[in-house]
Amino acid sequence: MQATLTALLAKATAELATLKSRADFEAAKARYVGPNGEFTALMKQMGTVPKEQRPAMGKLINETKGQLQVQLDATLARIGDAEISAQLGPAIDPTLPSPDAGPGTFHPLTLVREEMCRILRKAGFTVVEGPEVETEYYCFDALNTPADHPARDAQDTFYFPEKARFANVTKRVPEEKYLLRTHTSSVQIRTMLKGEPPIRIVSPGRVYRRDTSDATHSANFHQIECLYVDKNVTVRDLKALLDYIFASLLGKDTKTRFRPHYFGYTEPSFEVDLSAQHLPKVNKEWIEIGGCGLVDPAVFEGVGYDPNVWTGYAFGMGLERLAMLMYGIDDIRYFYQNDLRFLKQFA
């Protein structure tokens, strides 16, 4: 009996090793341990074994059965692994390119805008938006621009016909005309009319000038402006903000300089120059980058703030100009042509 068991186990081991498919395995398994299997038949012979030999023989059969089961399990696992492996194709060539589209990119103007917003957010500024179609009040009157100021001329500003109606921009007086905003400063007015100081906002957006398009001028372009209103705001605070912005954006060796200038909505007013030797095309020269100043008391009066209590500063600049400076781009029109060879360079 013992010899028979040993022989059967050896035979099963040899056969199982040759099996390739699950079907063969199931057939072989039935031949050994199925109801009519060889091993099952041996177990049925237990009854014919003399009583005193039964414990020893039972132990032997159980051991053999256990060994057989191990063989069966291993074989099934081996066949299962082989089946999974068969599902894989041939080995891949990892150096082939993905046929799917590569990484997407943000437009450089978006990148610069978001970078500025991120820098200003650290200084406590939140981003606000306003409409691009504006009324004369928000774009000019509230910003201390007199009715006959040349900037309001139809030669320089895009107007809409008198009959034009914009549902989500409200005129303050029926006579005023709708126009395309010439600067994002209109957003400052909207913000101040909406709430009380302190105010700390940054307003990026698209603006329009009625101008010839060339390498440095574009029919529409983008500005980013900051407004801070609080008690005791000074020229020095303004300088500190600008130094912080440009050191963060362009590196620590960036310097800024104020030049006196004139804007209707600030007093005193300055143009801001910057110098950063590492930037392409800047070298040691001072490059004009934006305008700024303390908010003119007349503007505060117009929005109902007491100019004896509140002070503030405002700062604005062109995003295209900044991007051109940062990236060394020499023609503003590239921003609007959207050649992918251009767009992919910045992300």
Partner: peptide, 22 residues
Amino acid sequence: TDRVPAAACTGPALIDGDDDPI
């Protein structure tokens, strides 16, 4: 105007509001 002294950008008081939904 080029003599305005440098200064640290002072930390703001918390200001209401978040970035515009747009």
